[in-house]
Write a protein that binds this DNA or RNA. Structure first.
Length: 479
RNA sequence: GGUCUCGUAGUAUAACGGUUAGUACAUCGGGUUUUCAUCCCGACAACGCGGGUUCGACUCCCGCCGAGAUCACCA
């Protein structure tokens, strides 16, 4: 049997860290089995619908490189893929239930329902609408809600993550199928759609576990085969034990893209939050995830979101891409992260800078703060020299003399490359009798006036002879 | 409150009923000719509690405690 999974978000806003896993796992399962992933937009709640949210969802999936086989944009044989365009289909299925006596039109005004509910609360008994079912339901007409007529009984089922489950009749109720506005409820629409689209694995958050018996009753009444049910535990907020949501400041997934997190790292982190393949591997490419993914190794307790680890993973990915695919492969991701001063620099030069700085980056946006001095002369700040922990024991005249000696040495250098520069620096150490901490800090700061920078010979090489000497001279004069 | 789920270091996780309870992030030390980072080495740190079953329990069973989910014409 072909595996068909789906990601079915409602367009109420951006996709955040807490809910994107219900897109990742269906994707991995589909790809692993040569199956299909369907993207379906569940927009039956017109009040919560947010303009542009669908595009946000698509953008997120595209960024993470989770392509879908059917859905908005790409189309497919089982469309439409917006529930709001499928009203006829739901009605058709609801009428089947109406005809077979497994559903009824409910004329009860909502105030009356509230009364029933209150009555139960007062008596401290569970409120079940089926106990208040209208005796002689009218013929259904548009504008009237349709309710399922449930048959209380016990159910057993298997959840691929949670294991064997069972429930008693007390959880079954007459749920609304079609709202009075004509739109279906989630409870009904997803069942119909999953069936029509031949979904084999329904993966969604654990919050639906409690309603599963009602869904099972619906499958039964509609004569449908149950799909595999997969409950995904919540991702928890960094603080407290609540599931991570927008209220806890859950950032949108794509916000991390703007901060310079690589999609590879994001996918890697999210996929491994609450899932592992039993090995000690930490870094997974998308292909490796597809290879090793398995439903039965999804954790069945919630996992806490830990941004620190995401950032660590991002650093790993930055280095991995550079080391395995080269500087240019990493460079294409850096476009939006260079400092303003770099706007006139050539790609070639920026690639050189990237090549010596990349292993210091946690996020690509670090480039903004870490590379300024490669593109414009830094502001000379003599105090930064005199307050430096290695340099403060030297007098200003000593600093000046040291700089001049260094300049002289570098001027005489025939070849301005990595090795020659390192040799010259080593000779300078001997000739001046200074410790690396002193001499190198001085030169480094005079060139960059930055809190940190790459290895000295590489910095010199990248800046070039002219600029390096000009900066050293300028500092020597300023002391 | 009813129903359901979950419970290994700060965090994410590993461990056919038999291991000094493993790994990674974080933290703290140390090393690599300056800084920051990388990389390497090391340290700290966990089976929620109580009963059983068993020669032996993180693992199986029961109870408790704790945390979460759900009880909508929202999804």
């Amino acid at each position: 049997m072909k595996v068909i999974t789906r990601f079915a978000p409602s367009p109420t806003g951006y996709i955040h860290i807490g809910n994107v896993r219900s897109a990742i796992y269906p994707y991995l399962l589909a790809r692993q089995n040569n199956g299909k992933l369907i993207l379906r937009i569940e927009d039956t709640d017109r009040e919560r619908h947010v303009e542009g949210a669908t595009e946000l969802i698509e953008d997120t999936l595209e960024w993470l490189d989770l392509n879908w086989d059917e859905g908005p944009i790409v189309g497919g044989p089982n469309g439409p893929y917006f529930q709001s365009e499928r009203k006829d289909i739901y009605l058709k299925w609801a009428k089947k239930l109406l005809d077979s006596g497994r559903a009824y039109a409910d004329p009860t005004p909502s105030e009356k329902i509230e009364e029933y509910r209150k009555e139960c609360n007062d008596k401290k008994i569970p409120f079940l609408y089926r106990n208040f079912r209208p005796q002689n339901p009218p013929e259904w007409k548009p504008g009237m809600p349709i309710r399922f007529k449930t048959e209380p009984k016990s159910y057993e089922w298997r959840d691929e993550v949670m294991g064997e489950m069972k429930s008693g009749p007390e959880v079954l109720d007459d749920i609304i199928l079609i709202k009075k506005d004509g739109y279906p409820t989630y409870n009904f629409a997803h069942i119909v759609d999953d069936a029509e689209m031949n979904i084999t694995h329904v993966m969604r958050g654990v919050e639906y576990l409690s309603s599963t018996p009602n869904y099972l009753a619906l499958y039964e009444a509609l004569g449908l085969e149950r799909p595999h049910l997969v409950s995904l535990p919540h991702i928890l907020a960094p603080n407290g034990n609540k599931k991570l949501g927008k209220r806890d400041g859950a950032k949108s997934v794509t916000e991390y893209r703007d901060d310079g997190v690589l999609a590879e790292a994001m996918l890697n982190y999210l996929a491994c939050l609450g899932w592992n393949d039993g090995t000690e591997q930490e870094i997974y490419s998308k292909e490796e995830l597809i290879q090793s993914f398995s439903l039965d190794r999804i954790q069945n307790s919630g996992a806490r979101y830990d941004e620190t680890k995401l950032l660590w993973l991002n650093g790993q990915w930055i280095r991995k891409i550079f080391d395995e695919q080269g500087a240019e492969a990493l460079y294409v991701h850096t476009e939006n992260f260079w400092p303003e001063s770099a706007k006139n620099a050539t790609d070639d030069y920026k690639i050189k800078v990237l090549s010596i700085i990349y292993d210091r980056l946690k996020v690509l946006s670090d480039l903004k703060t870490m590379t300024g001095y490669f593109f414009e002369d830094p502001k000379i700040d003599i105090e930064m020299l005199t307050n430096n922990k290695f340099l403060k024991k030297l007098s200003e005249s000593e600093l000046e003399a040291l700089l001049k000696t260094s300049i002289k040495k570098l001027i005489d250098l025939k070849v301005w490359d990595e090795d020659s520069l390192q040799t010259a620096l080593n000779e300078l150490l001997e000739e001046t009798g200074k410790k690396p901490a002193e001499l190198f800090s001085l030169i480094r700061l005079a060139l960059s006036f930055a809190p940190f920078s790459p290895a000295l010979n590489l910095t010199l090489k990248t800046l070039g002879r002219e600029i390096s000497l000009a900066r050293l001279n300028a500092v020597a004069r300023s002391i």
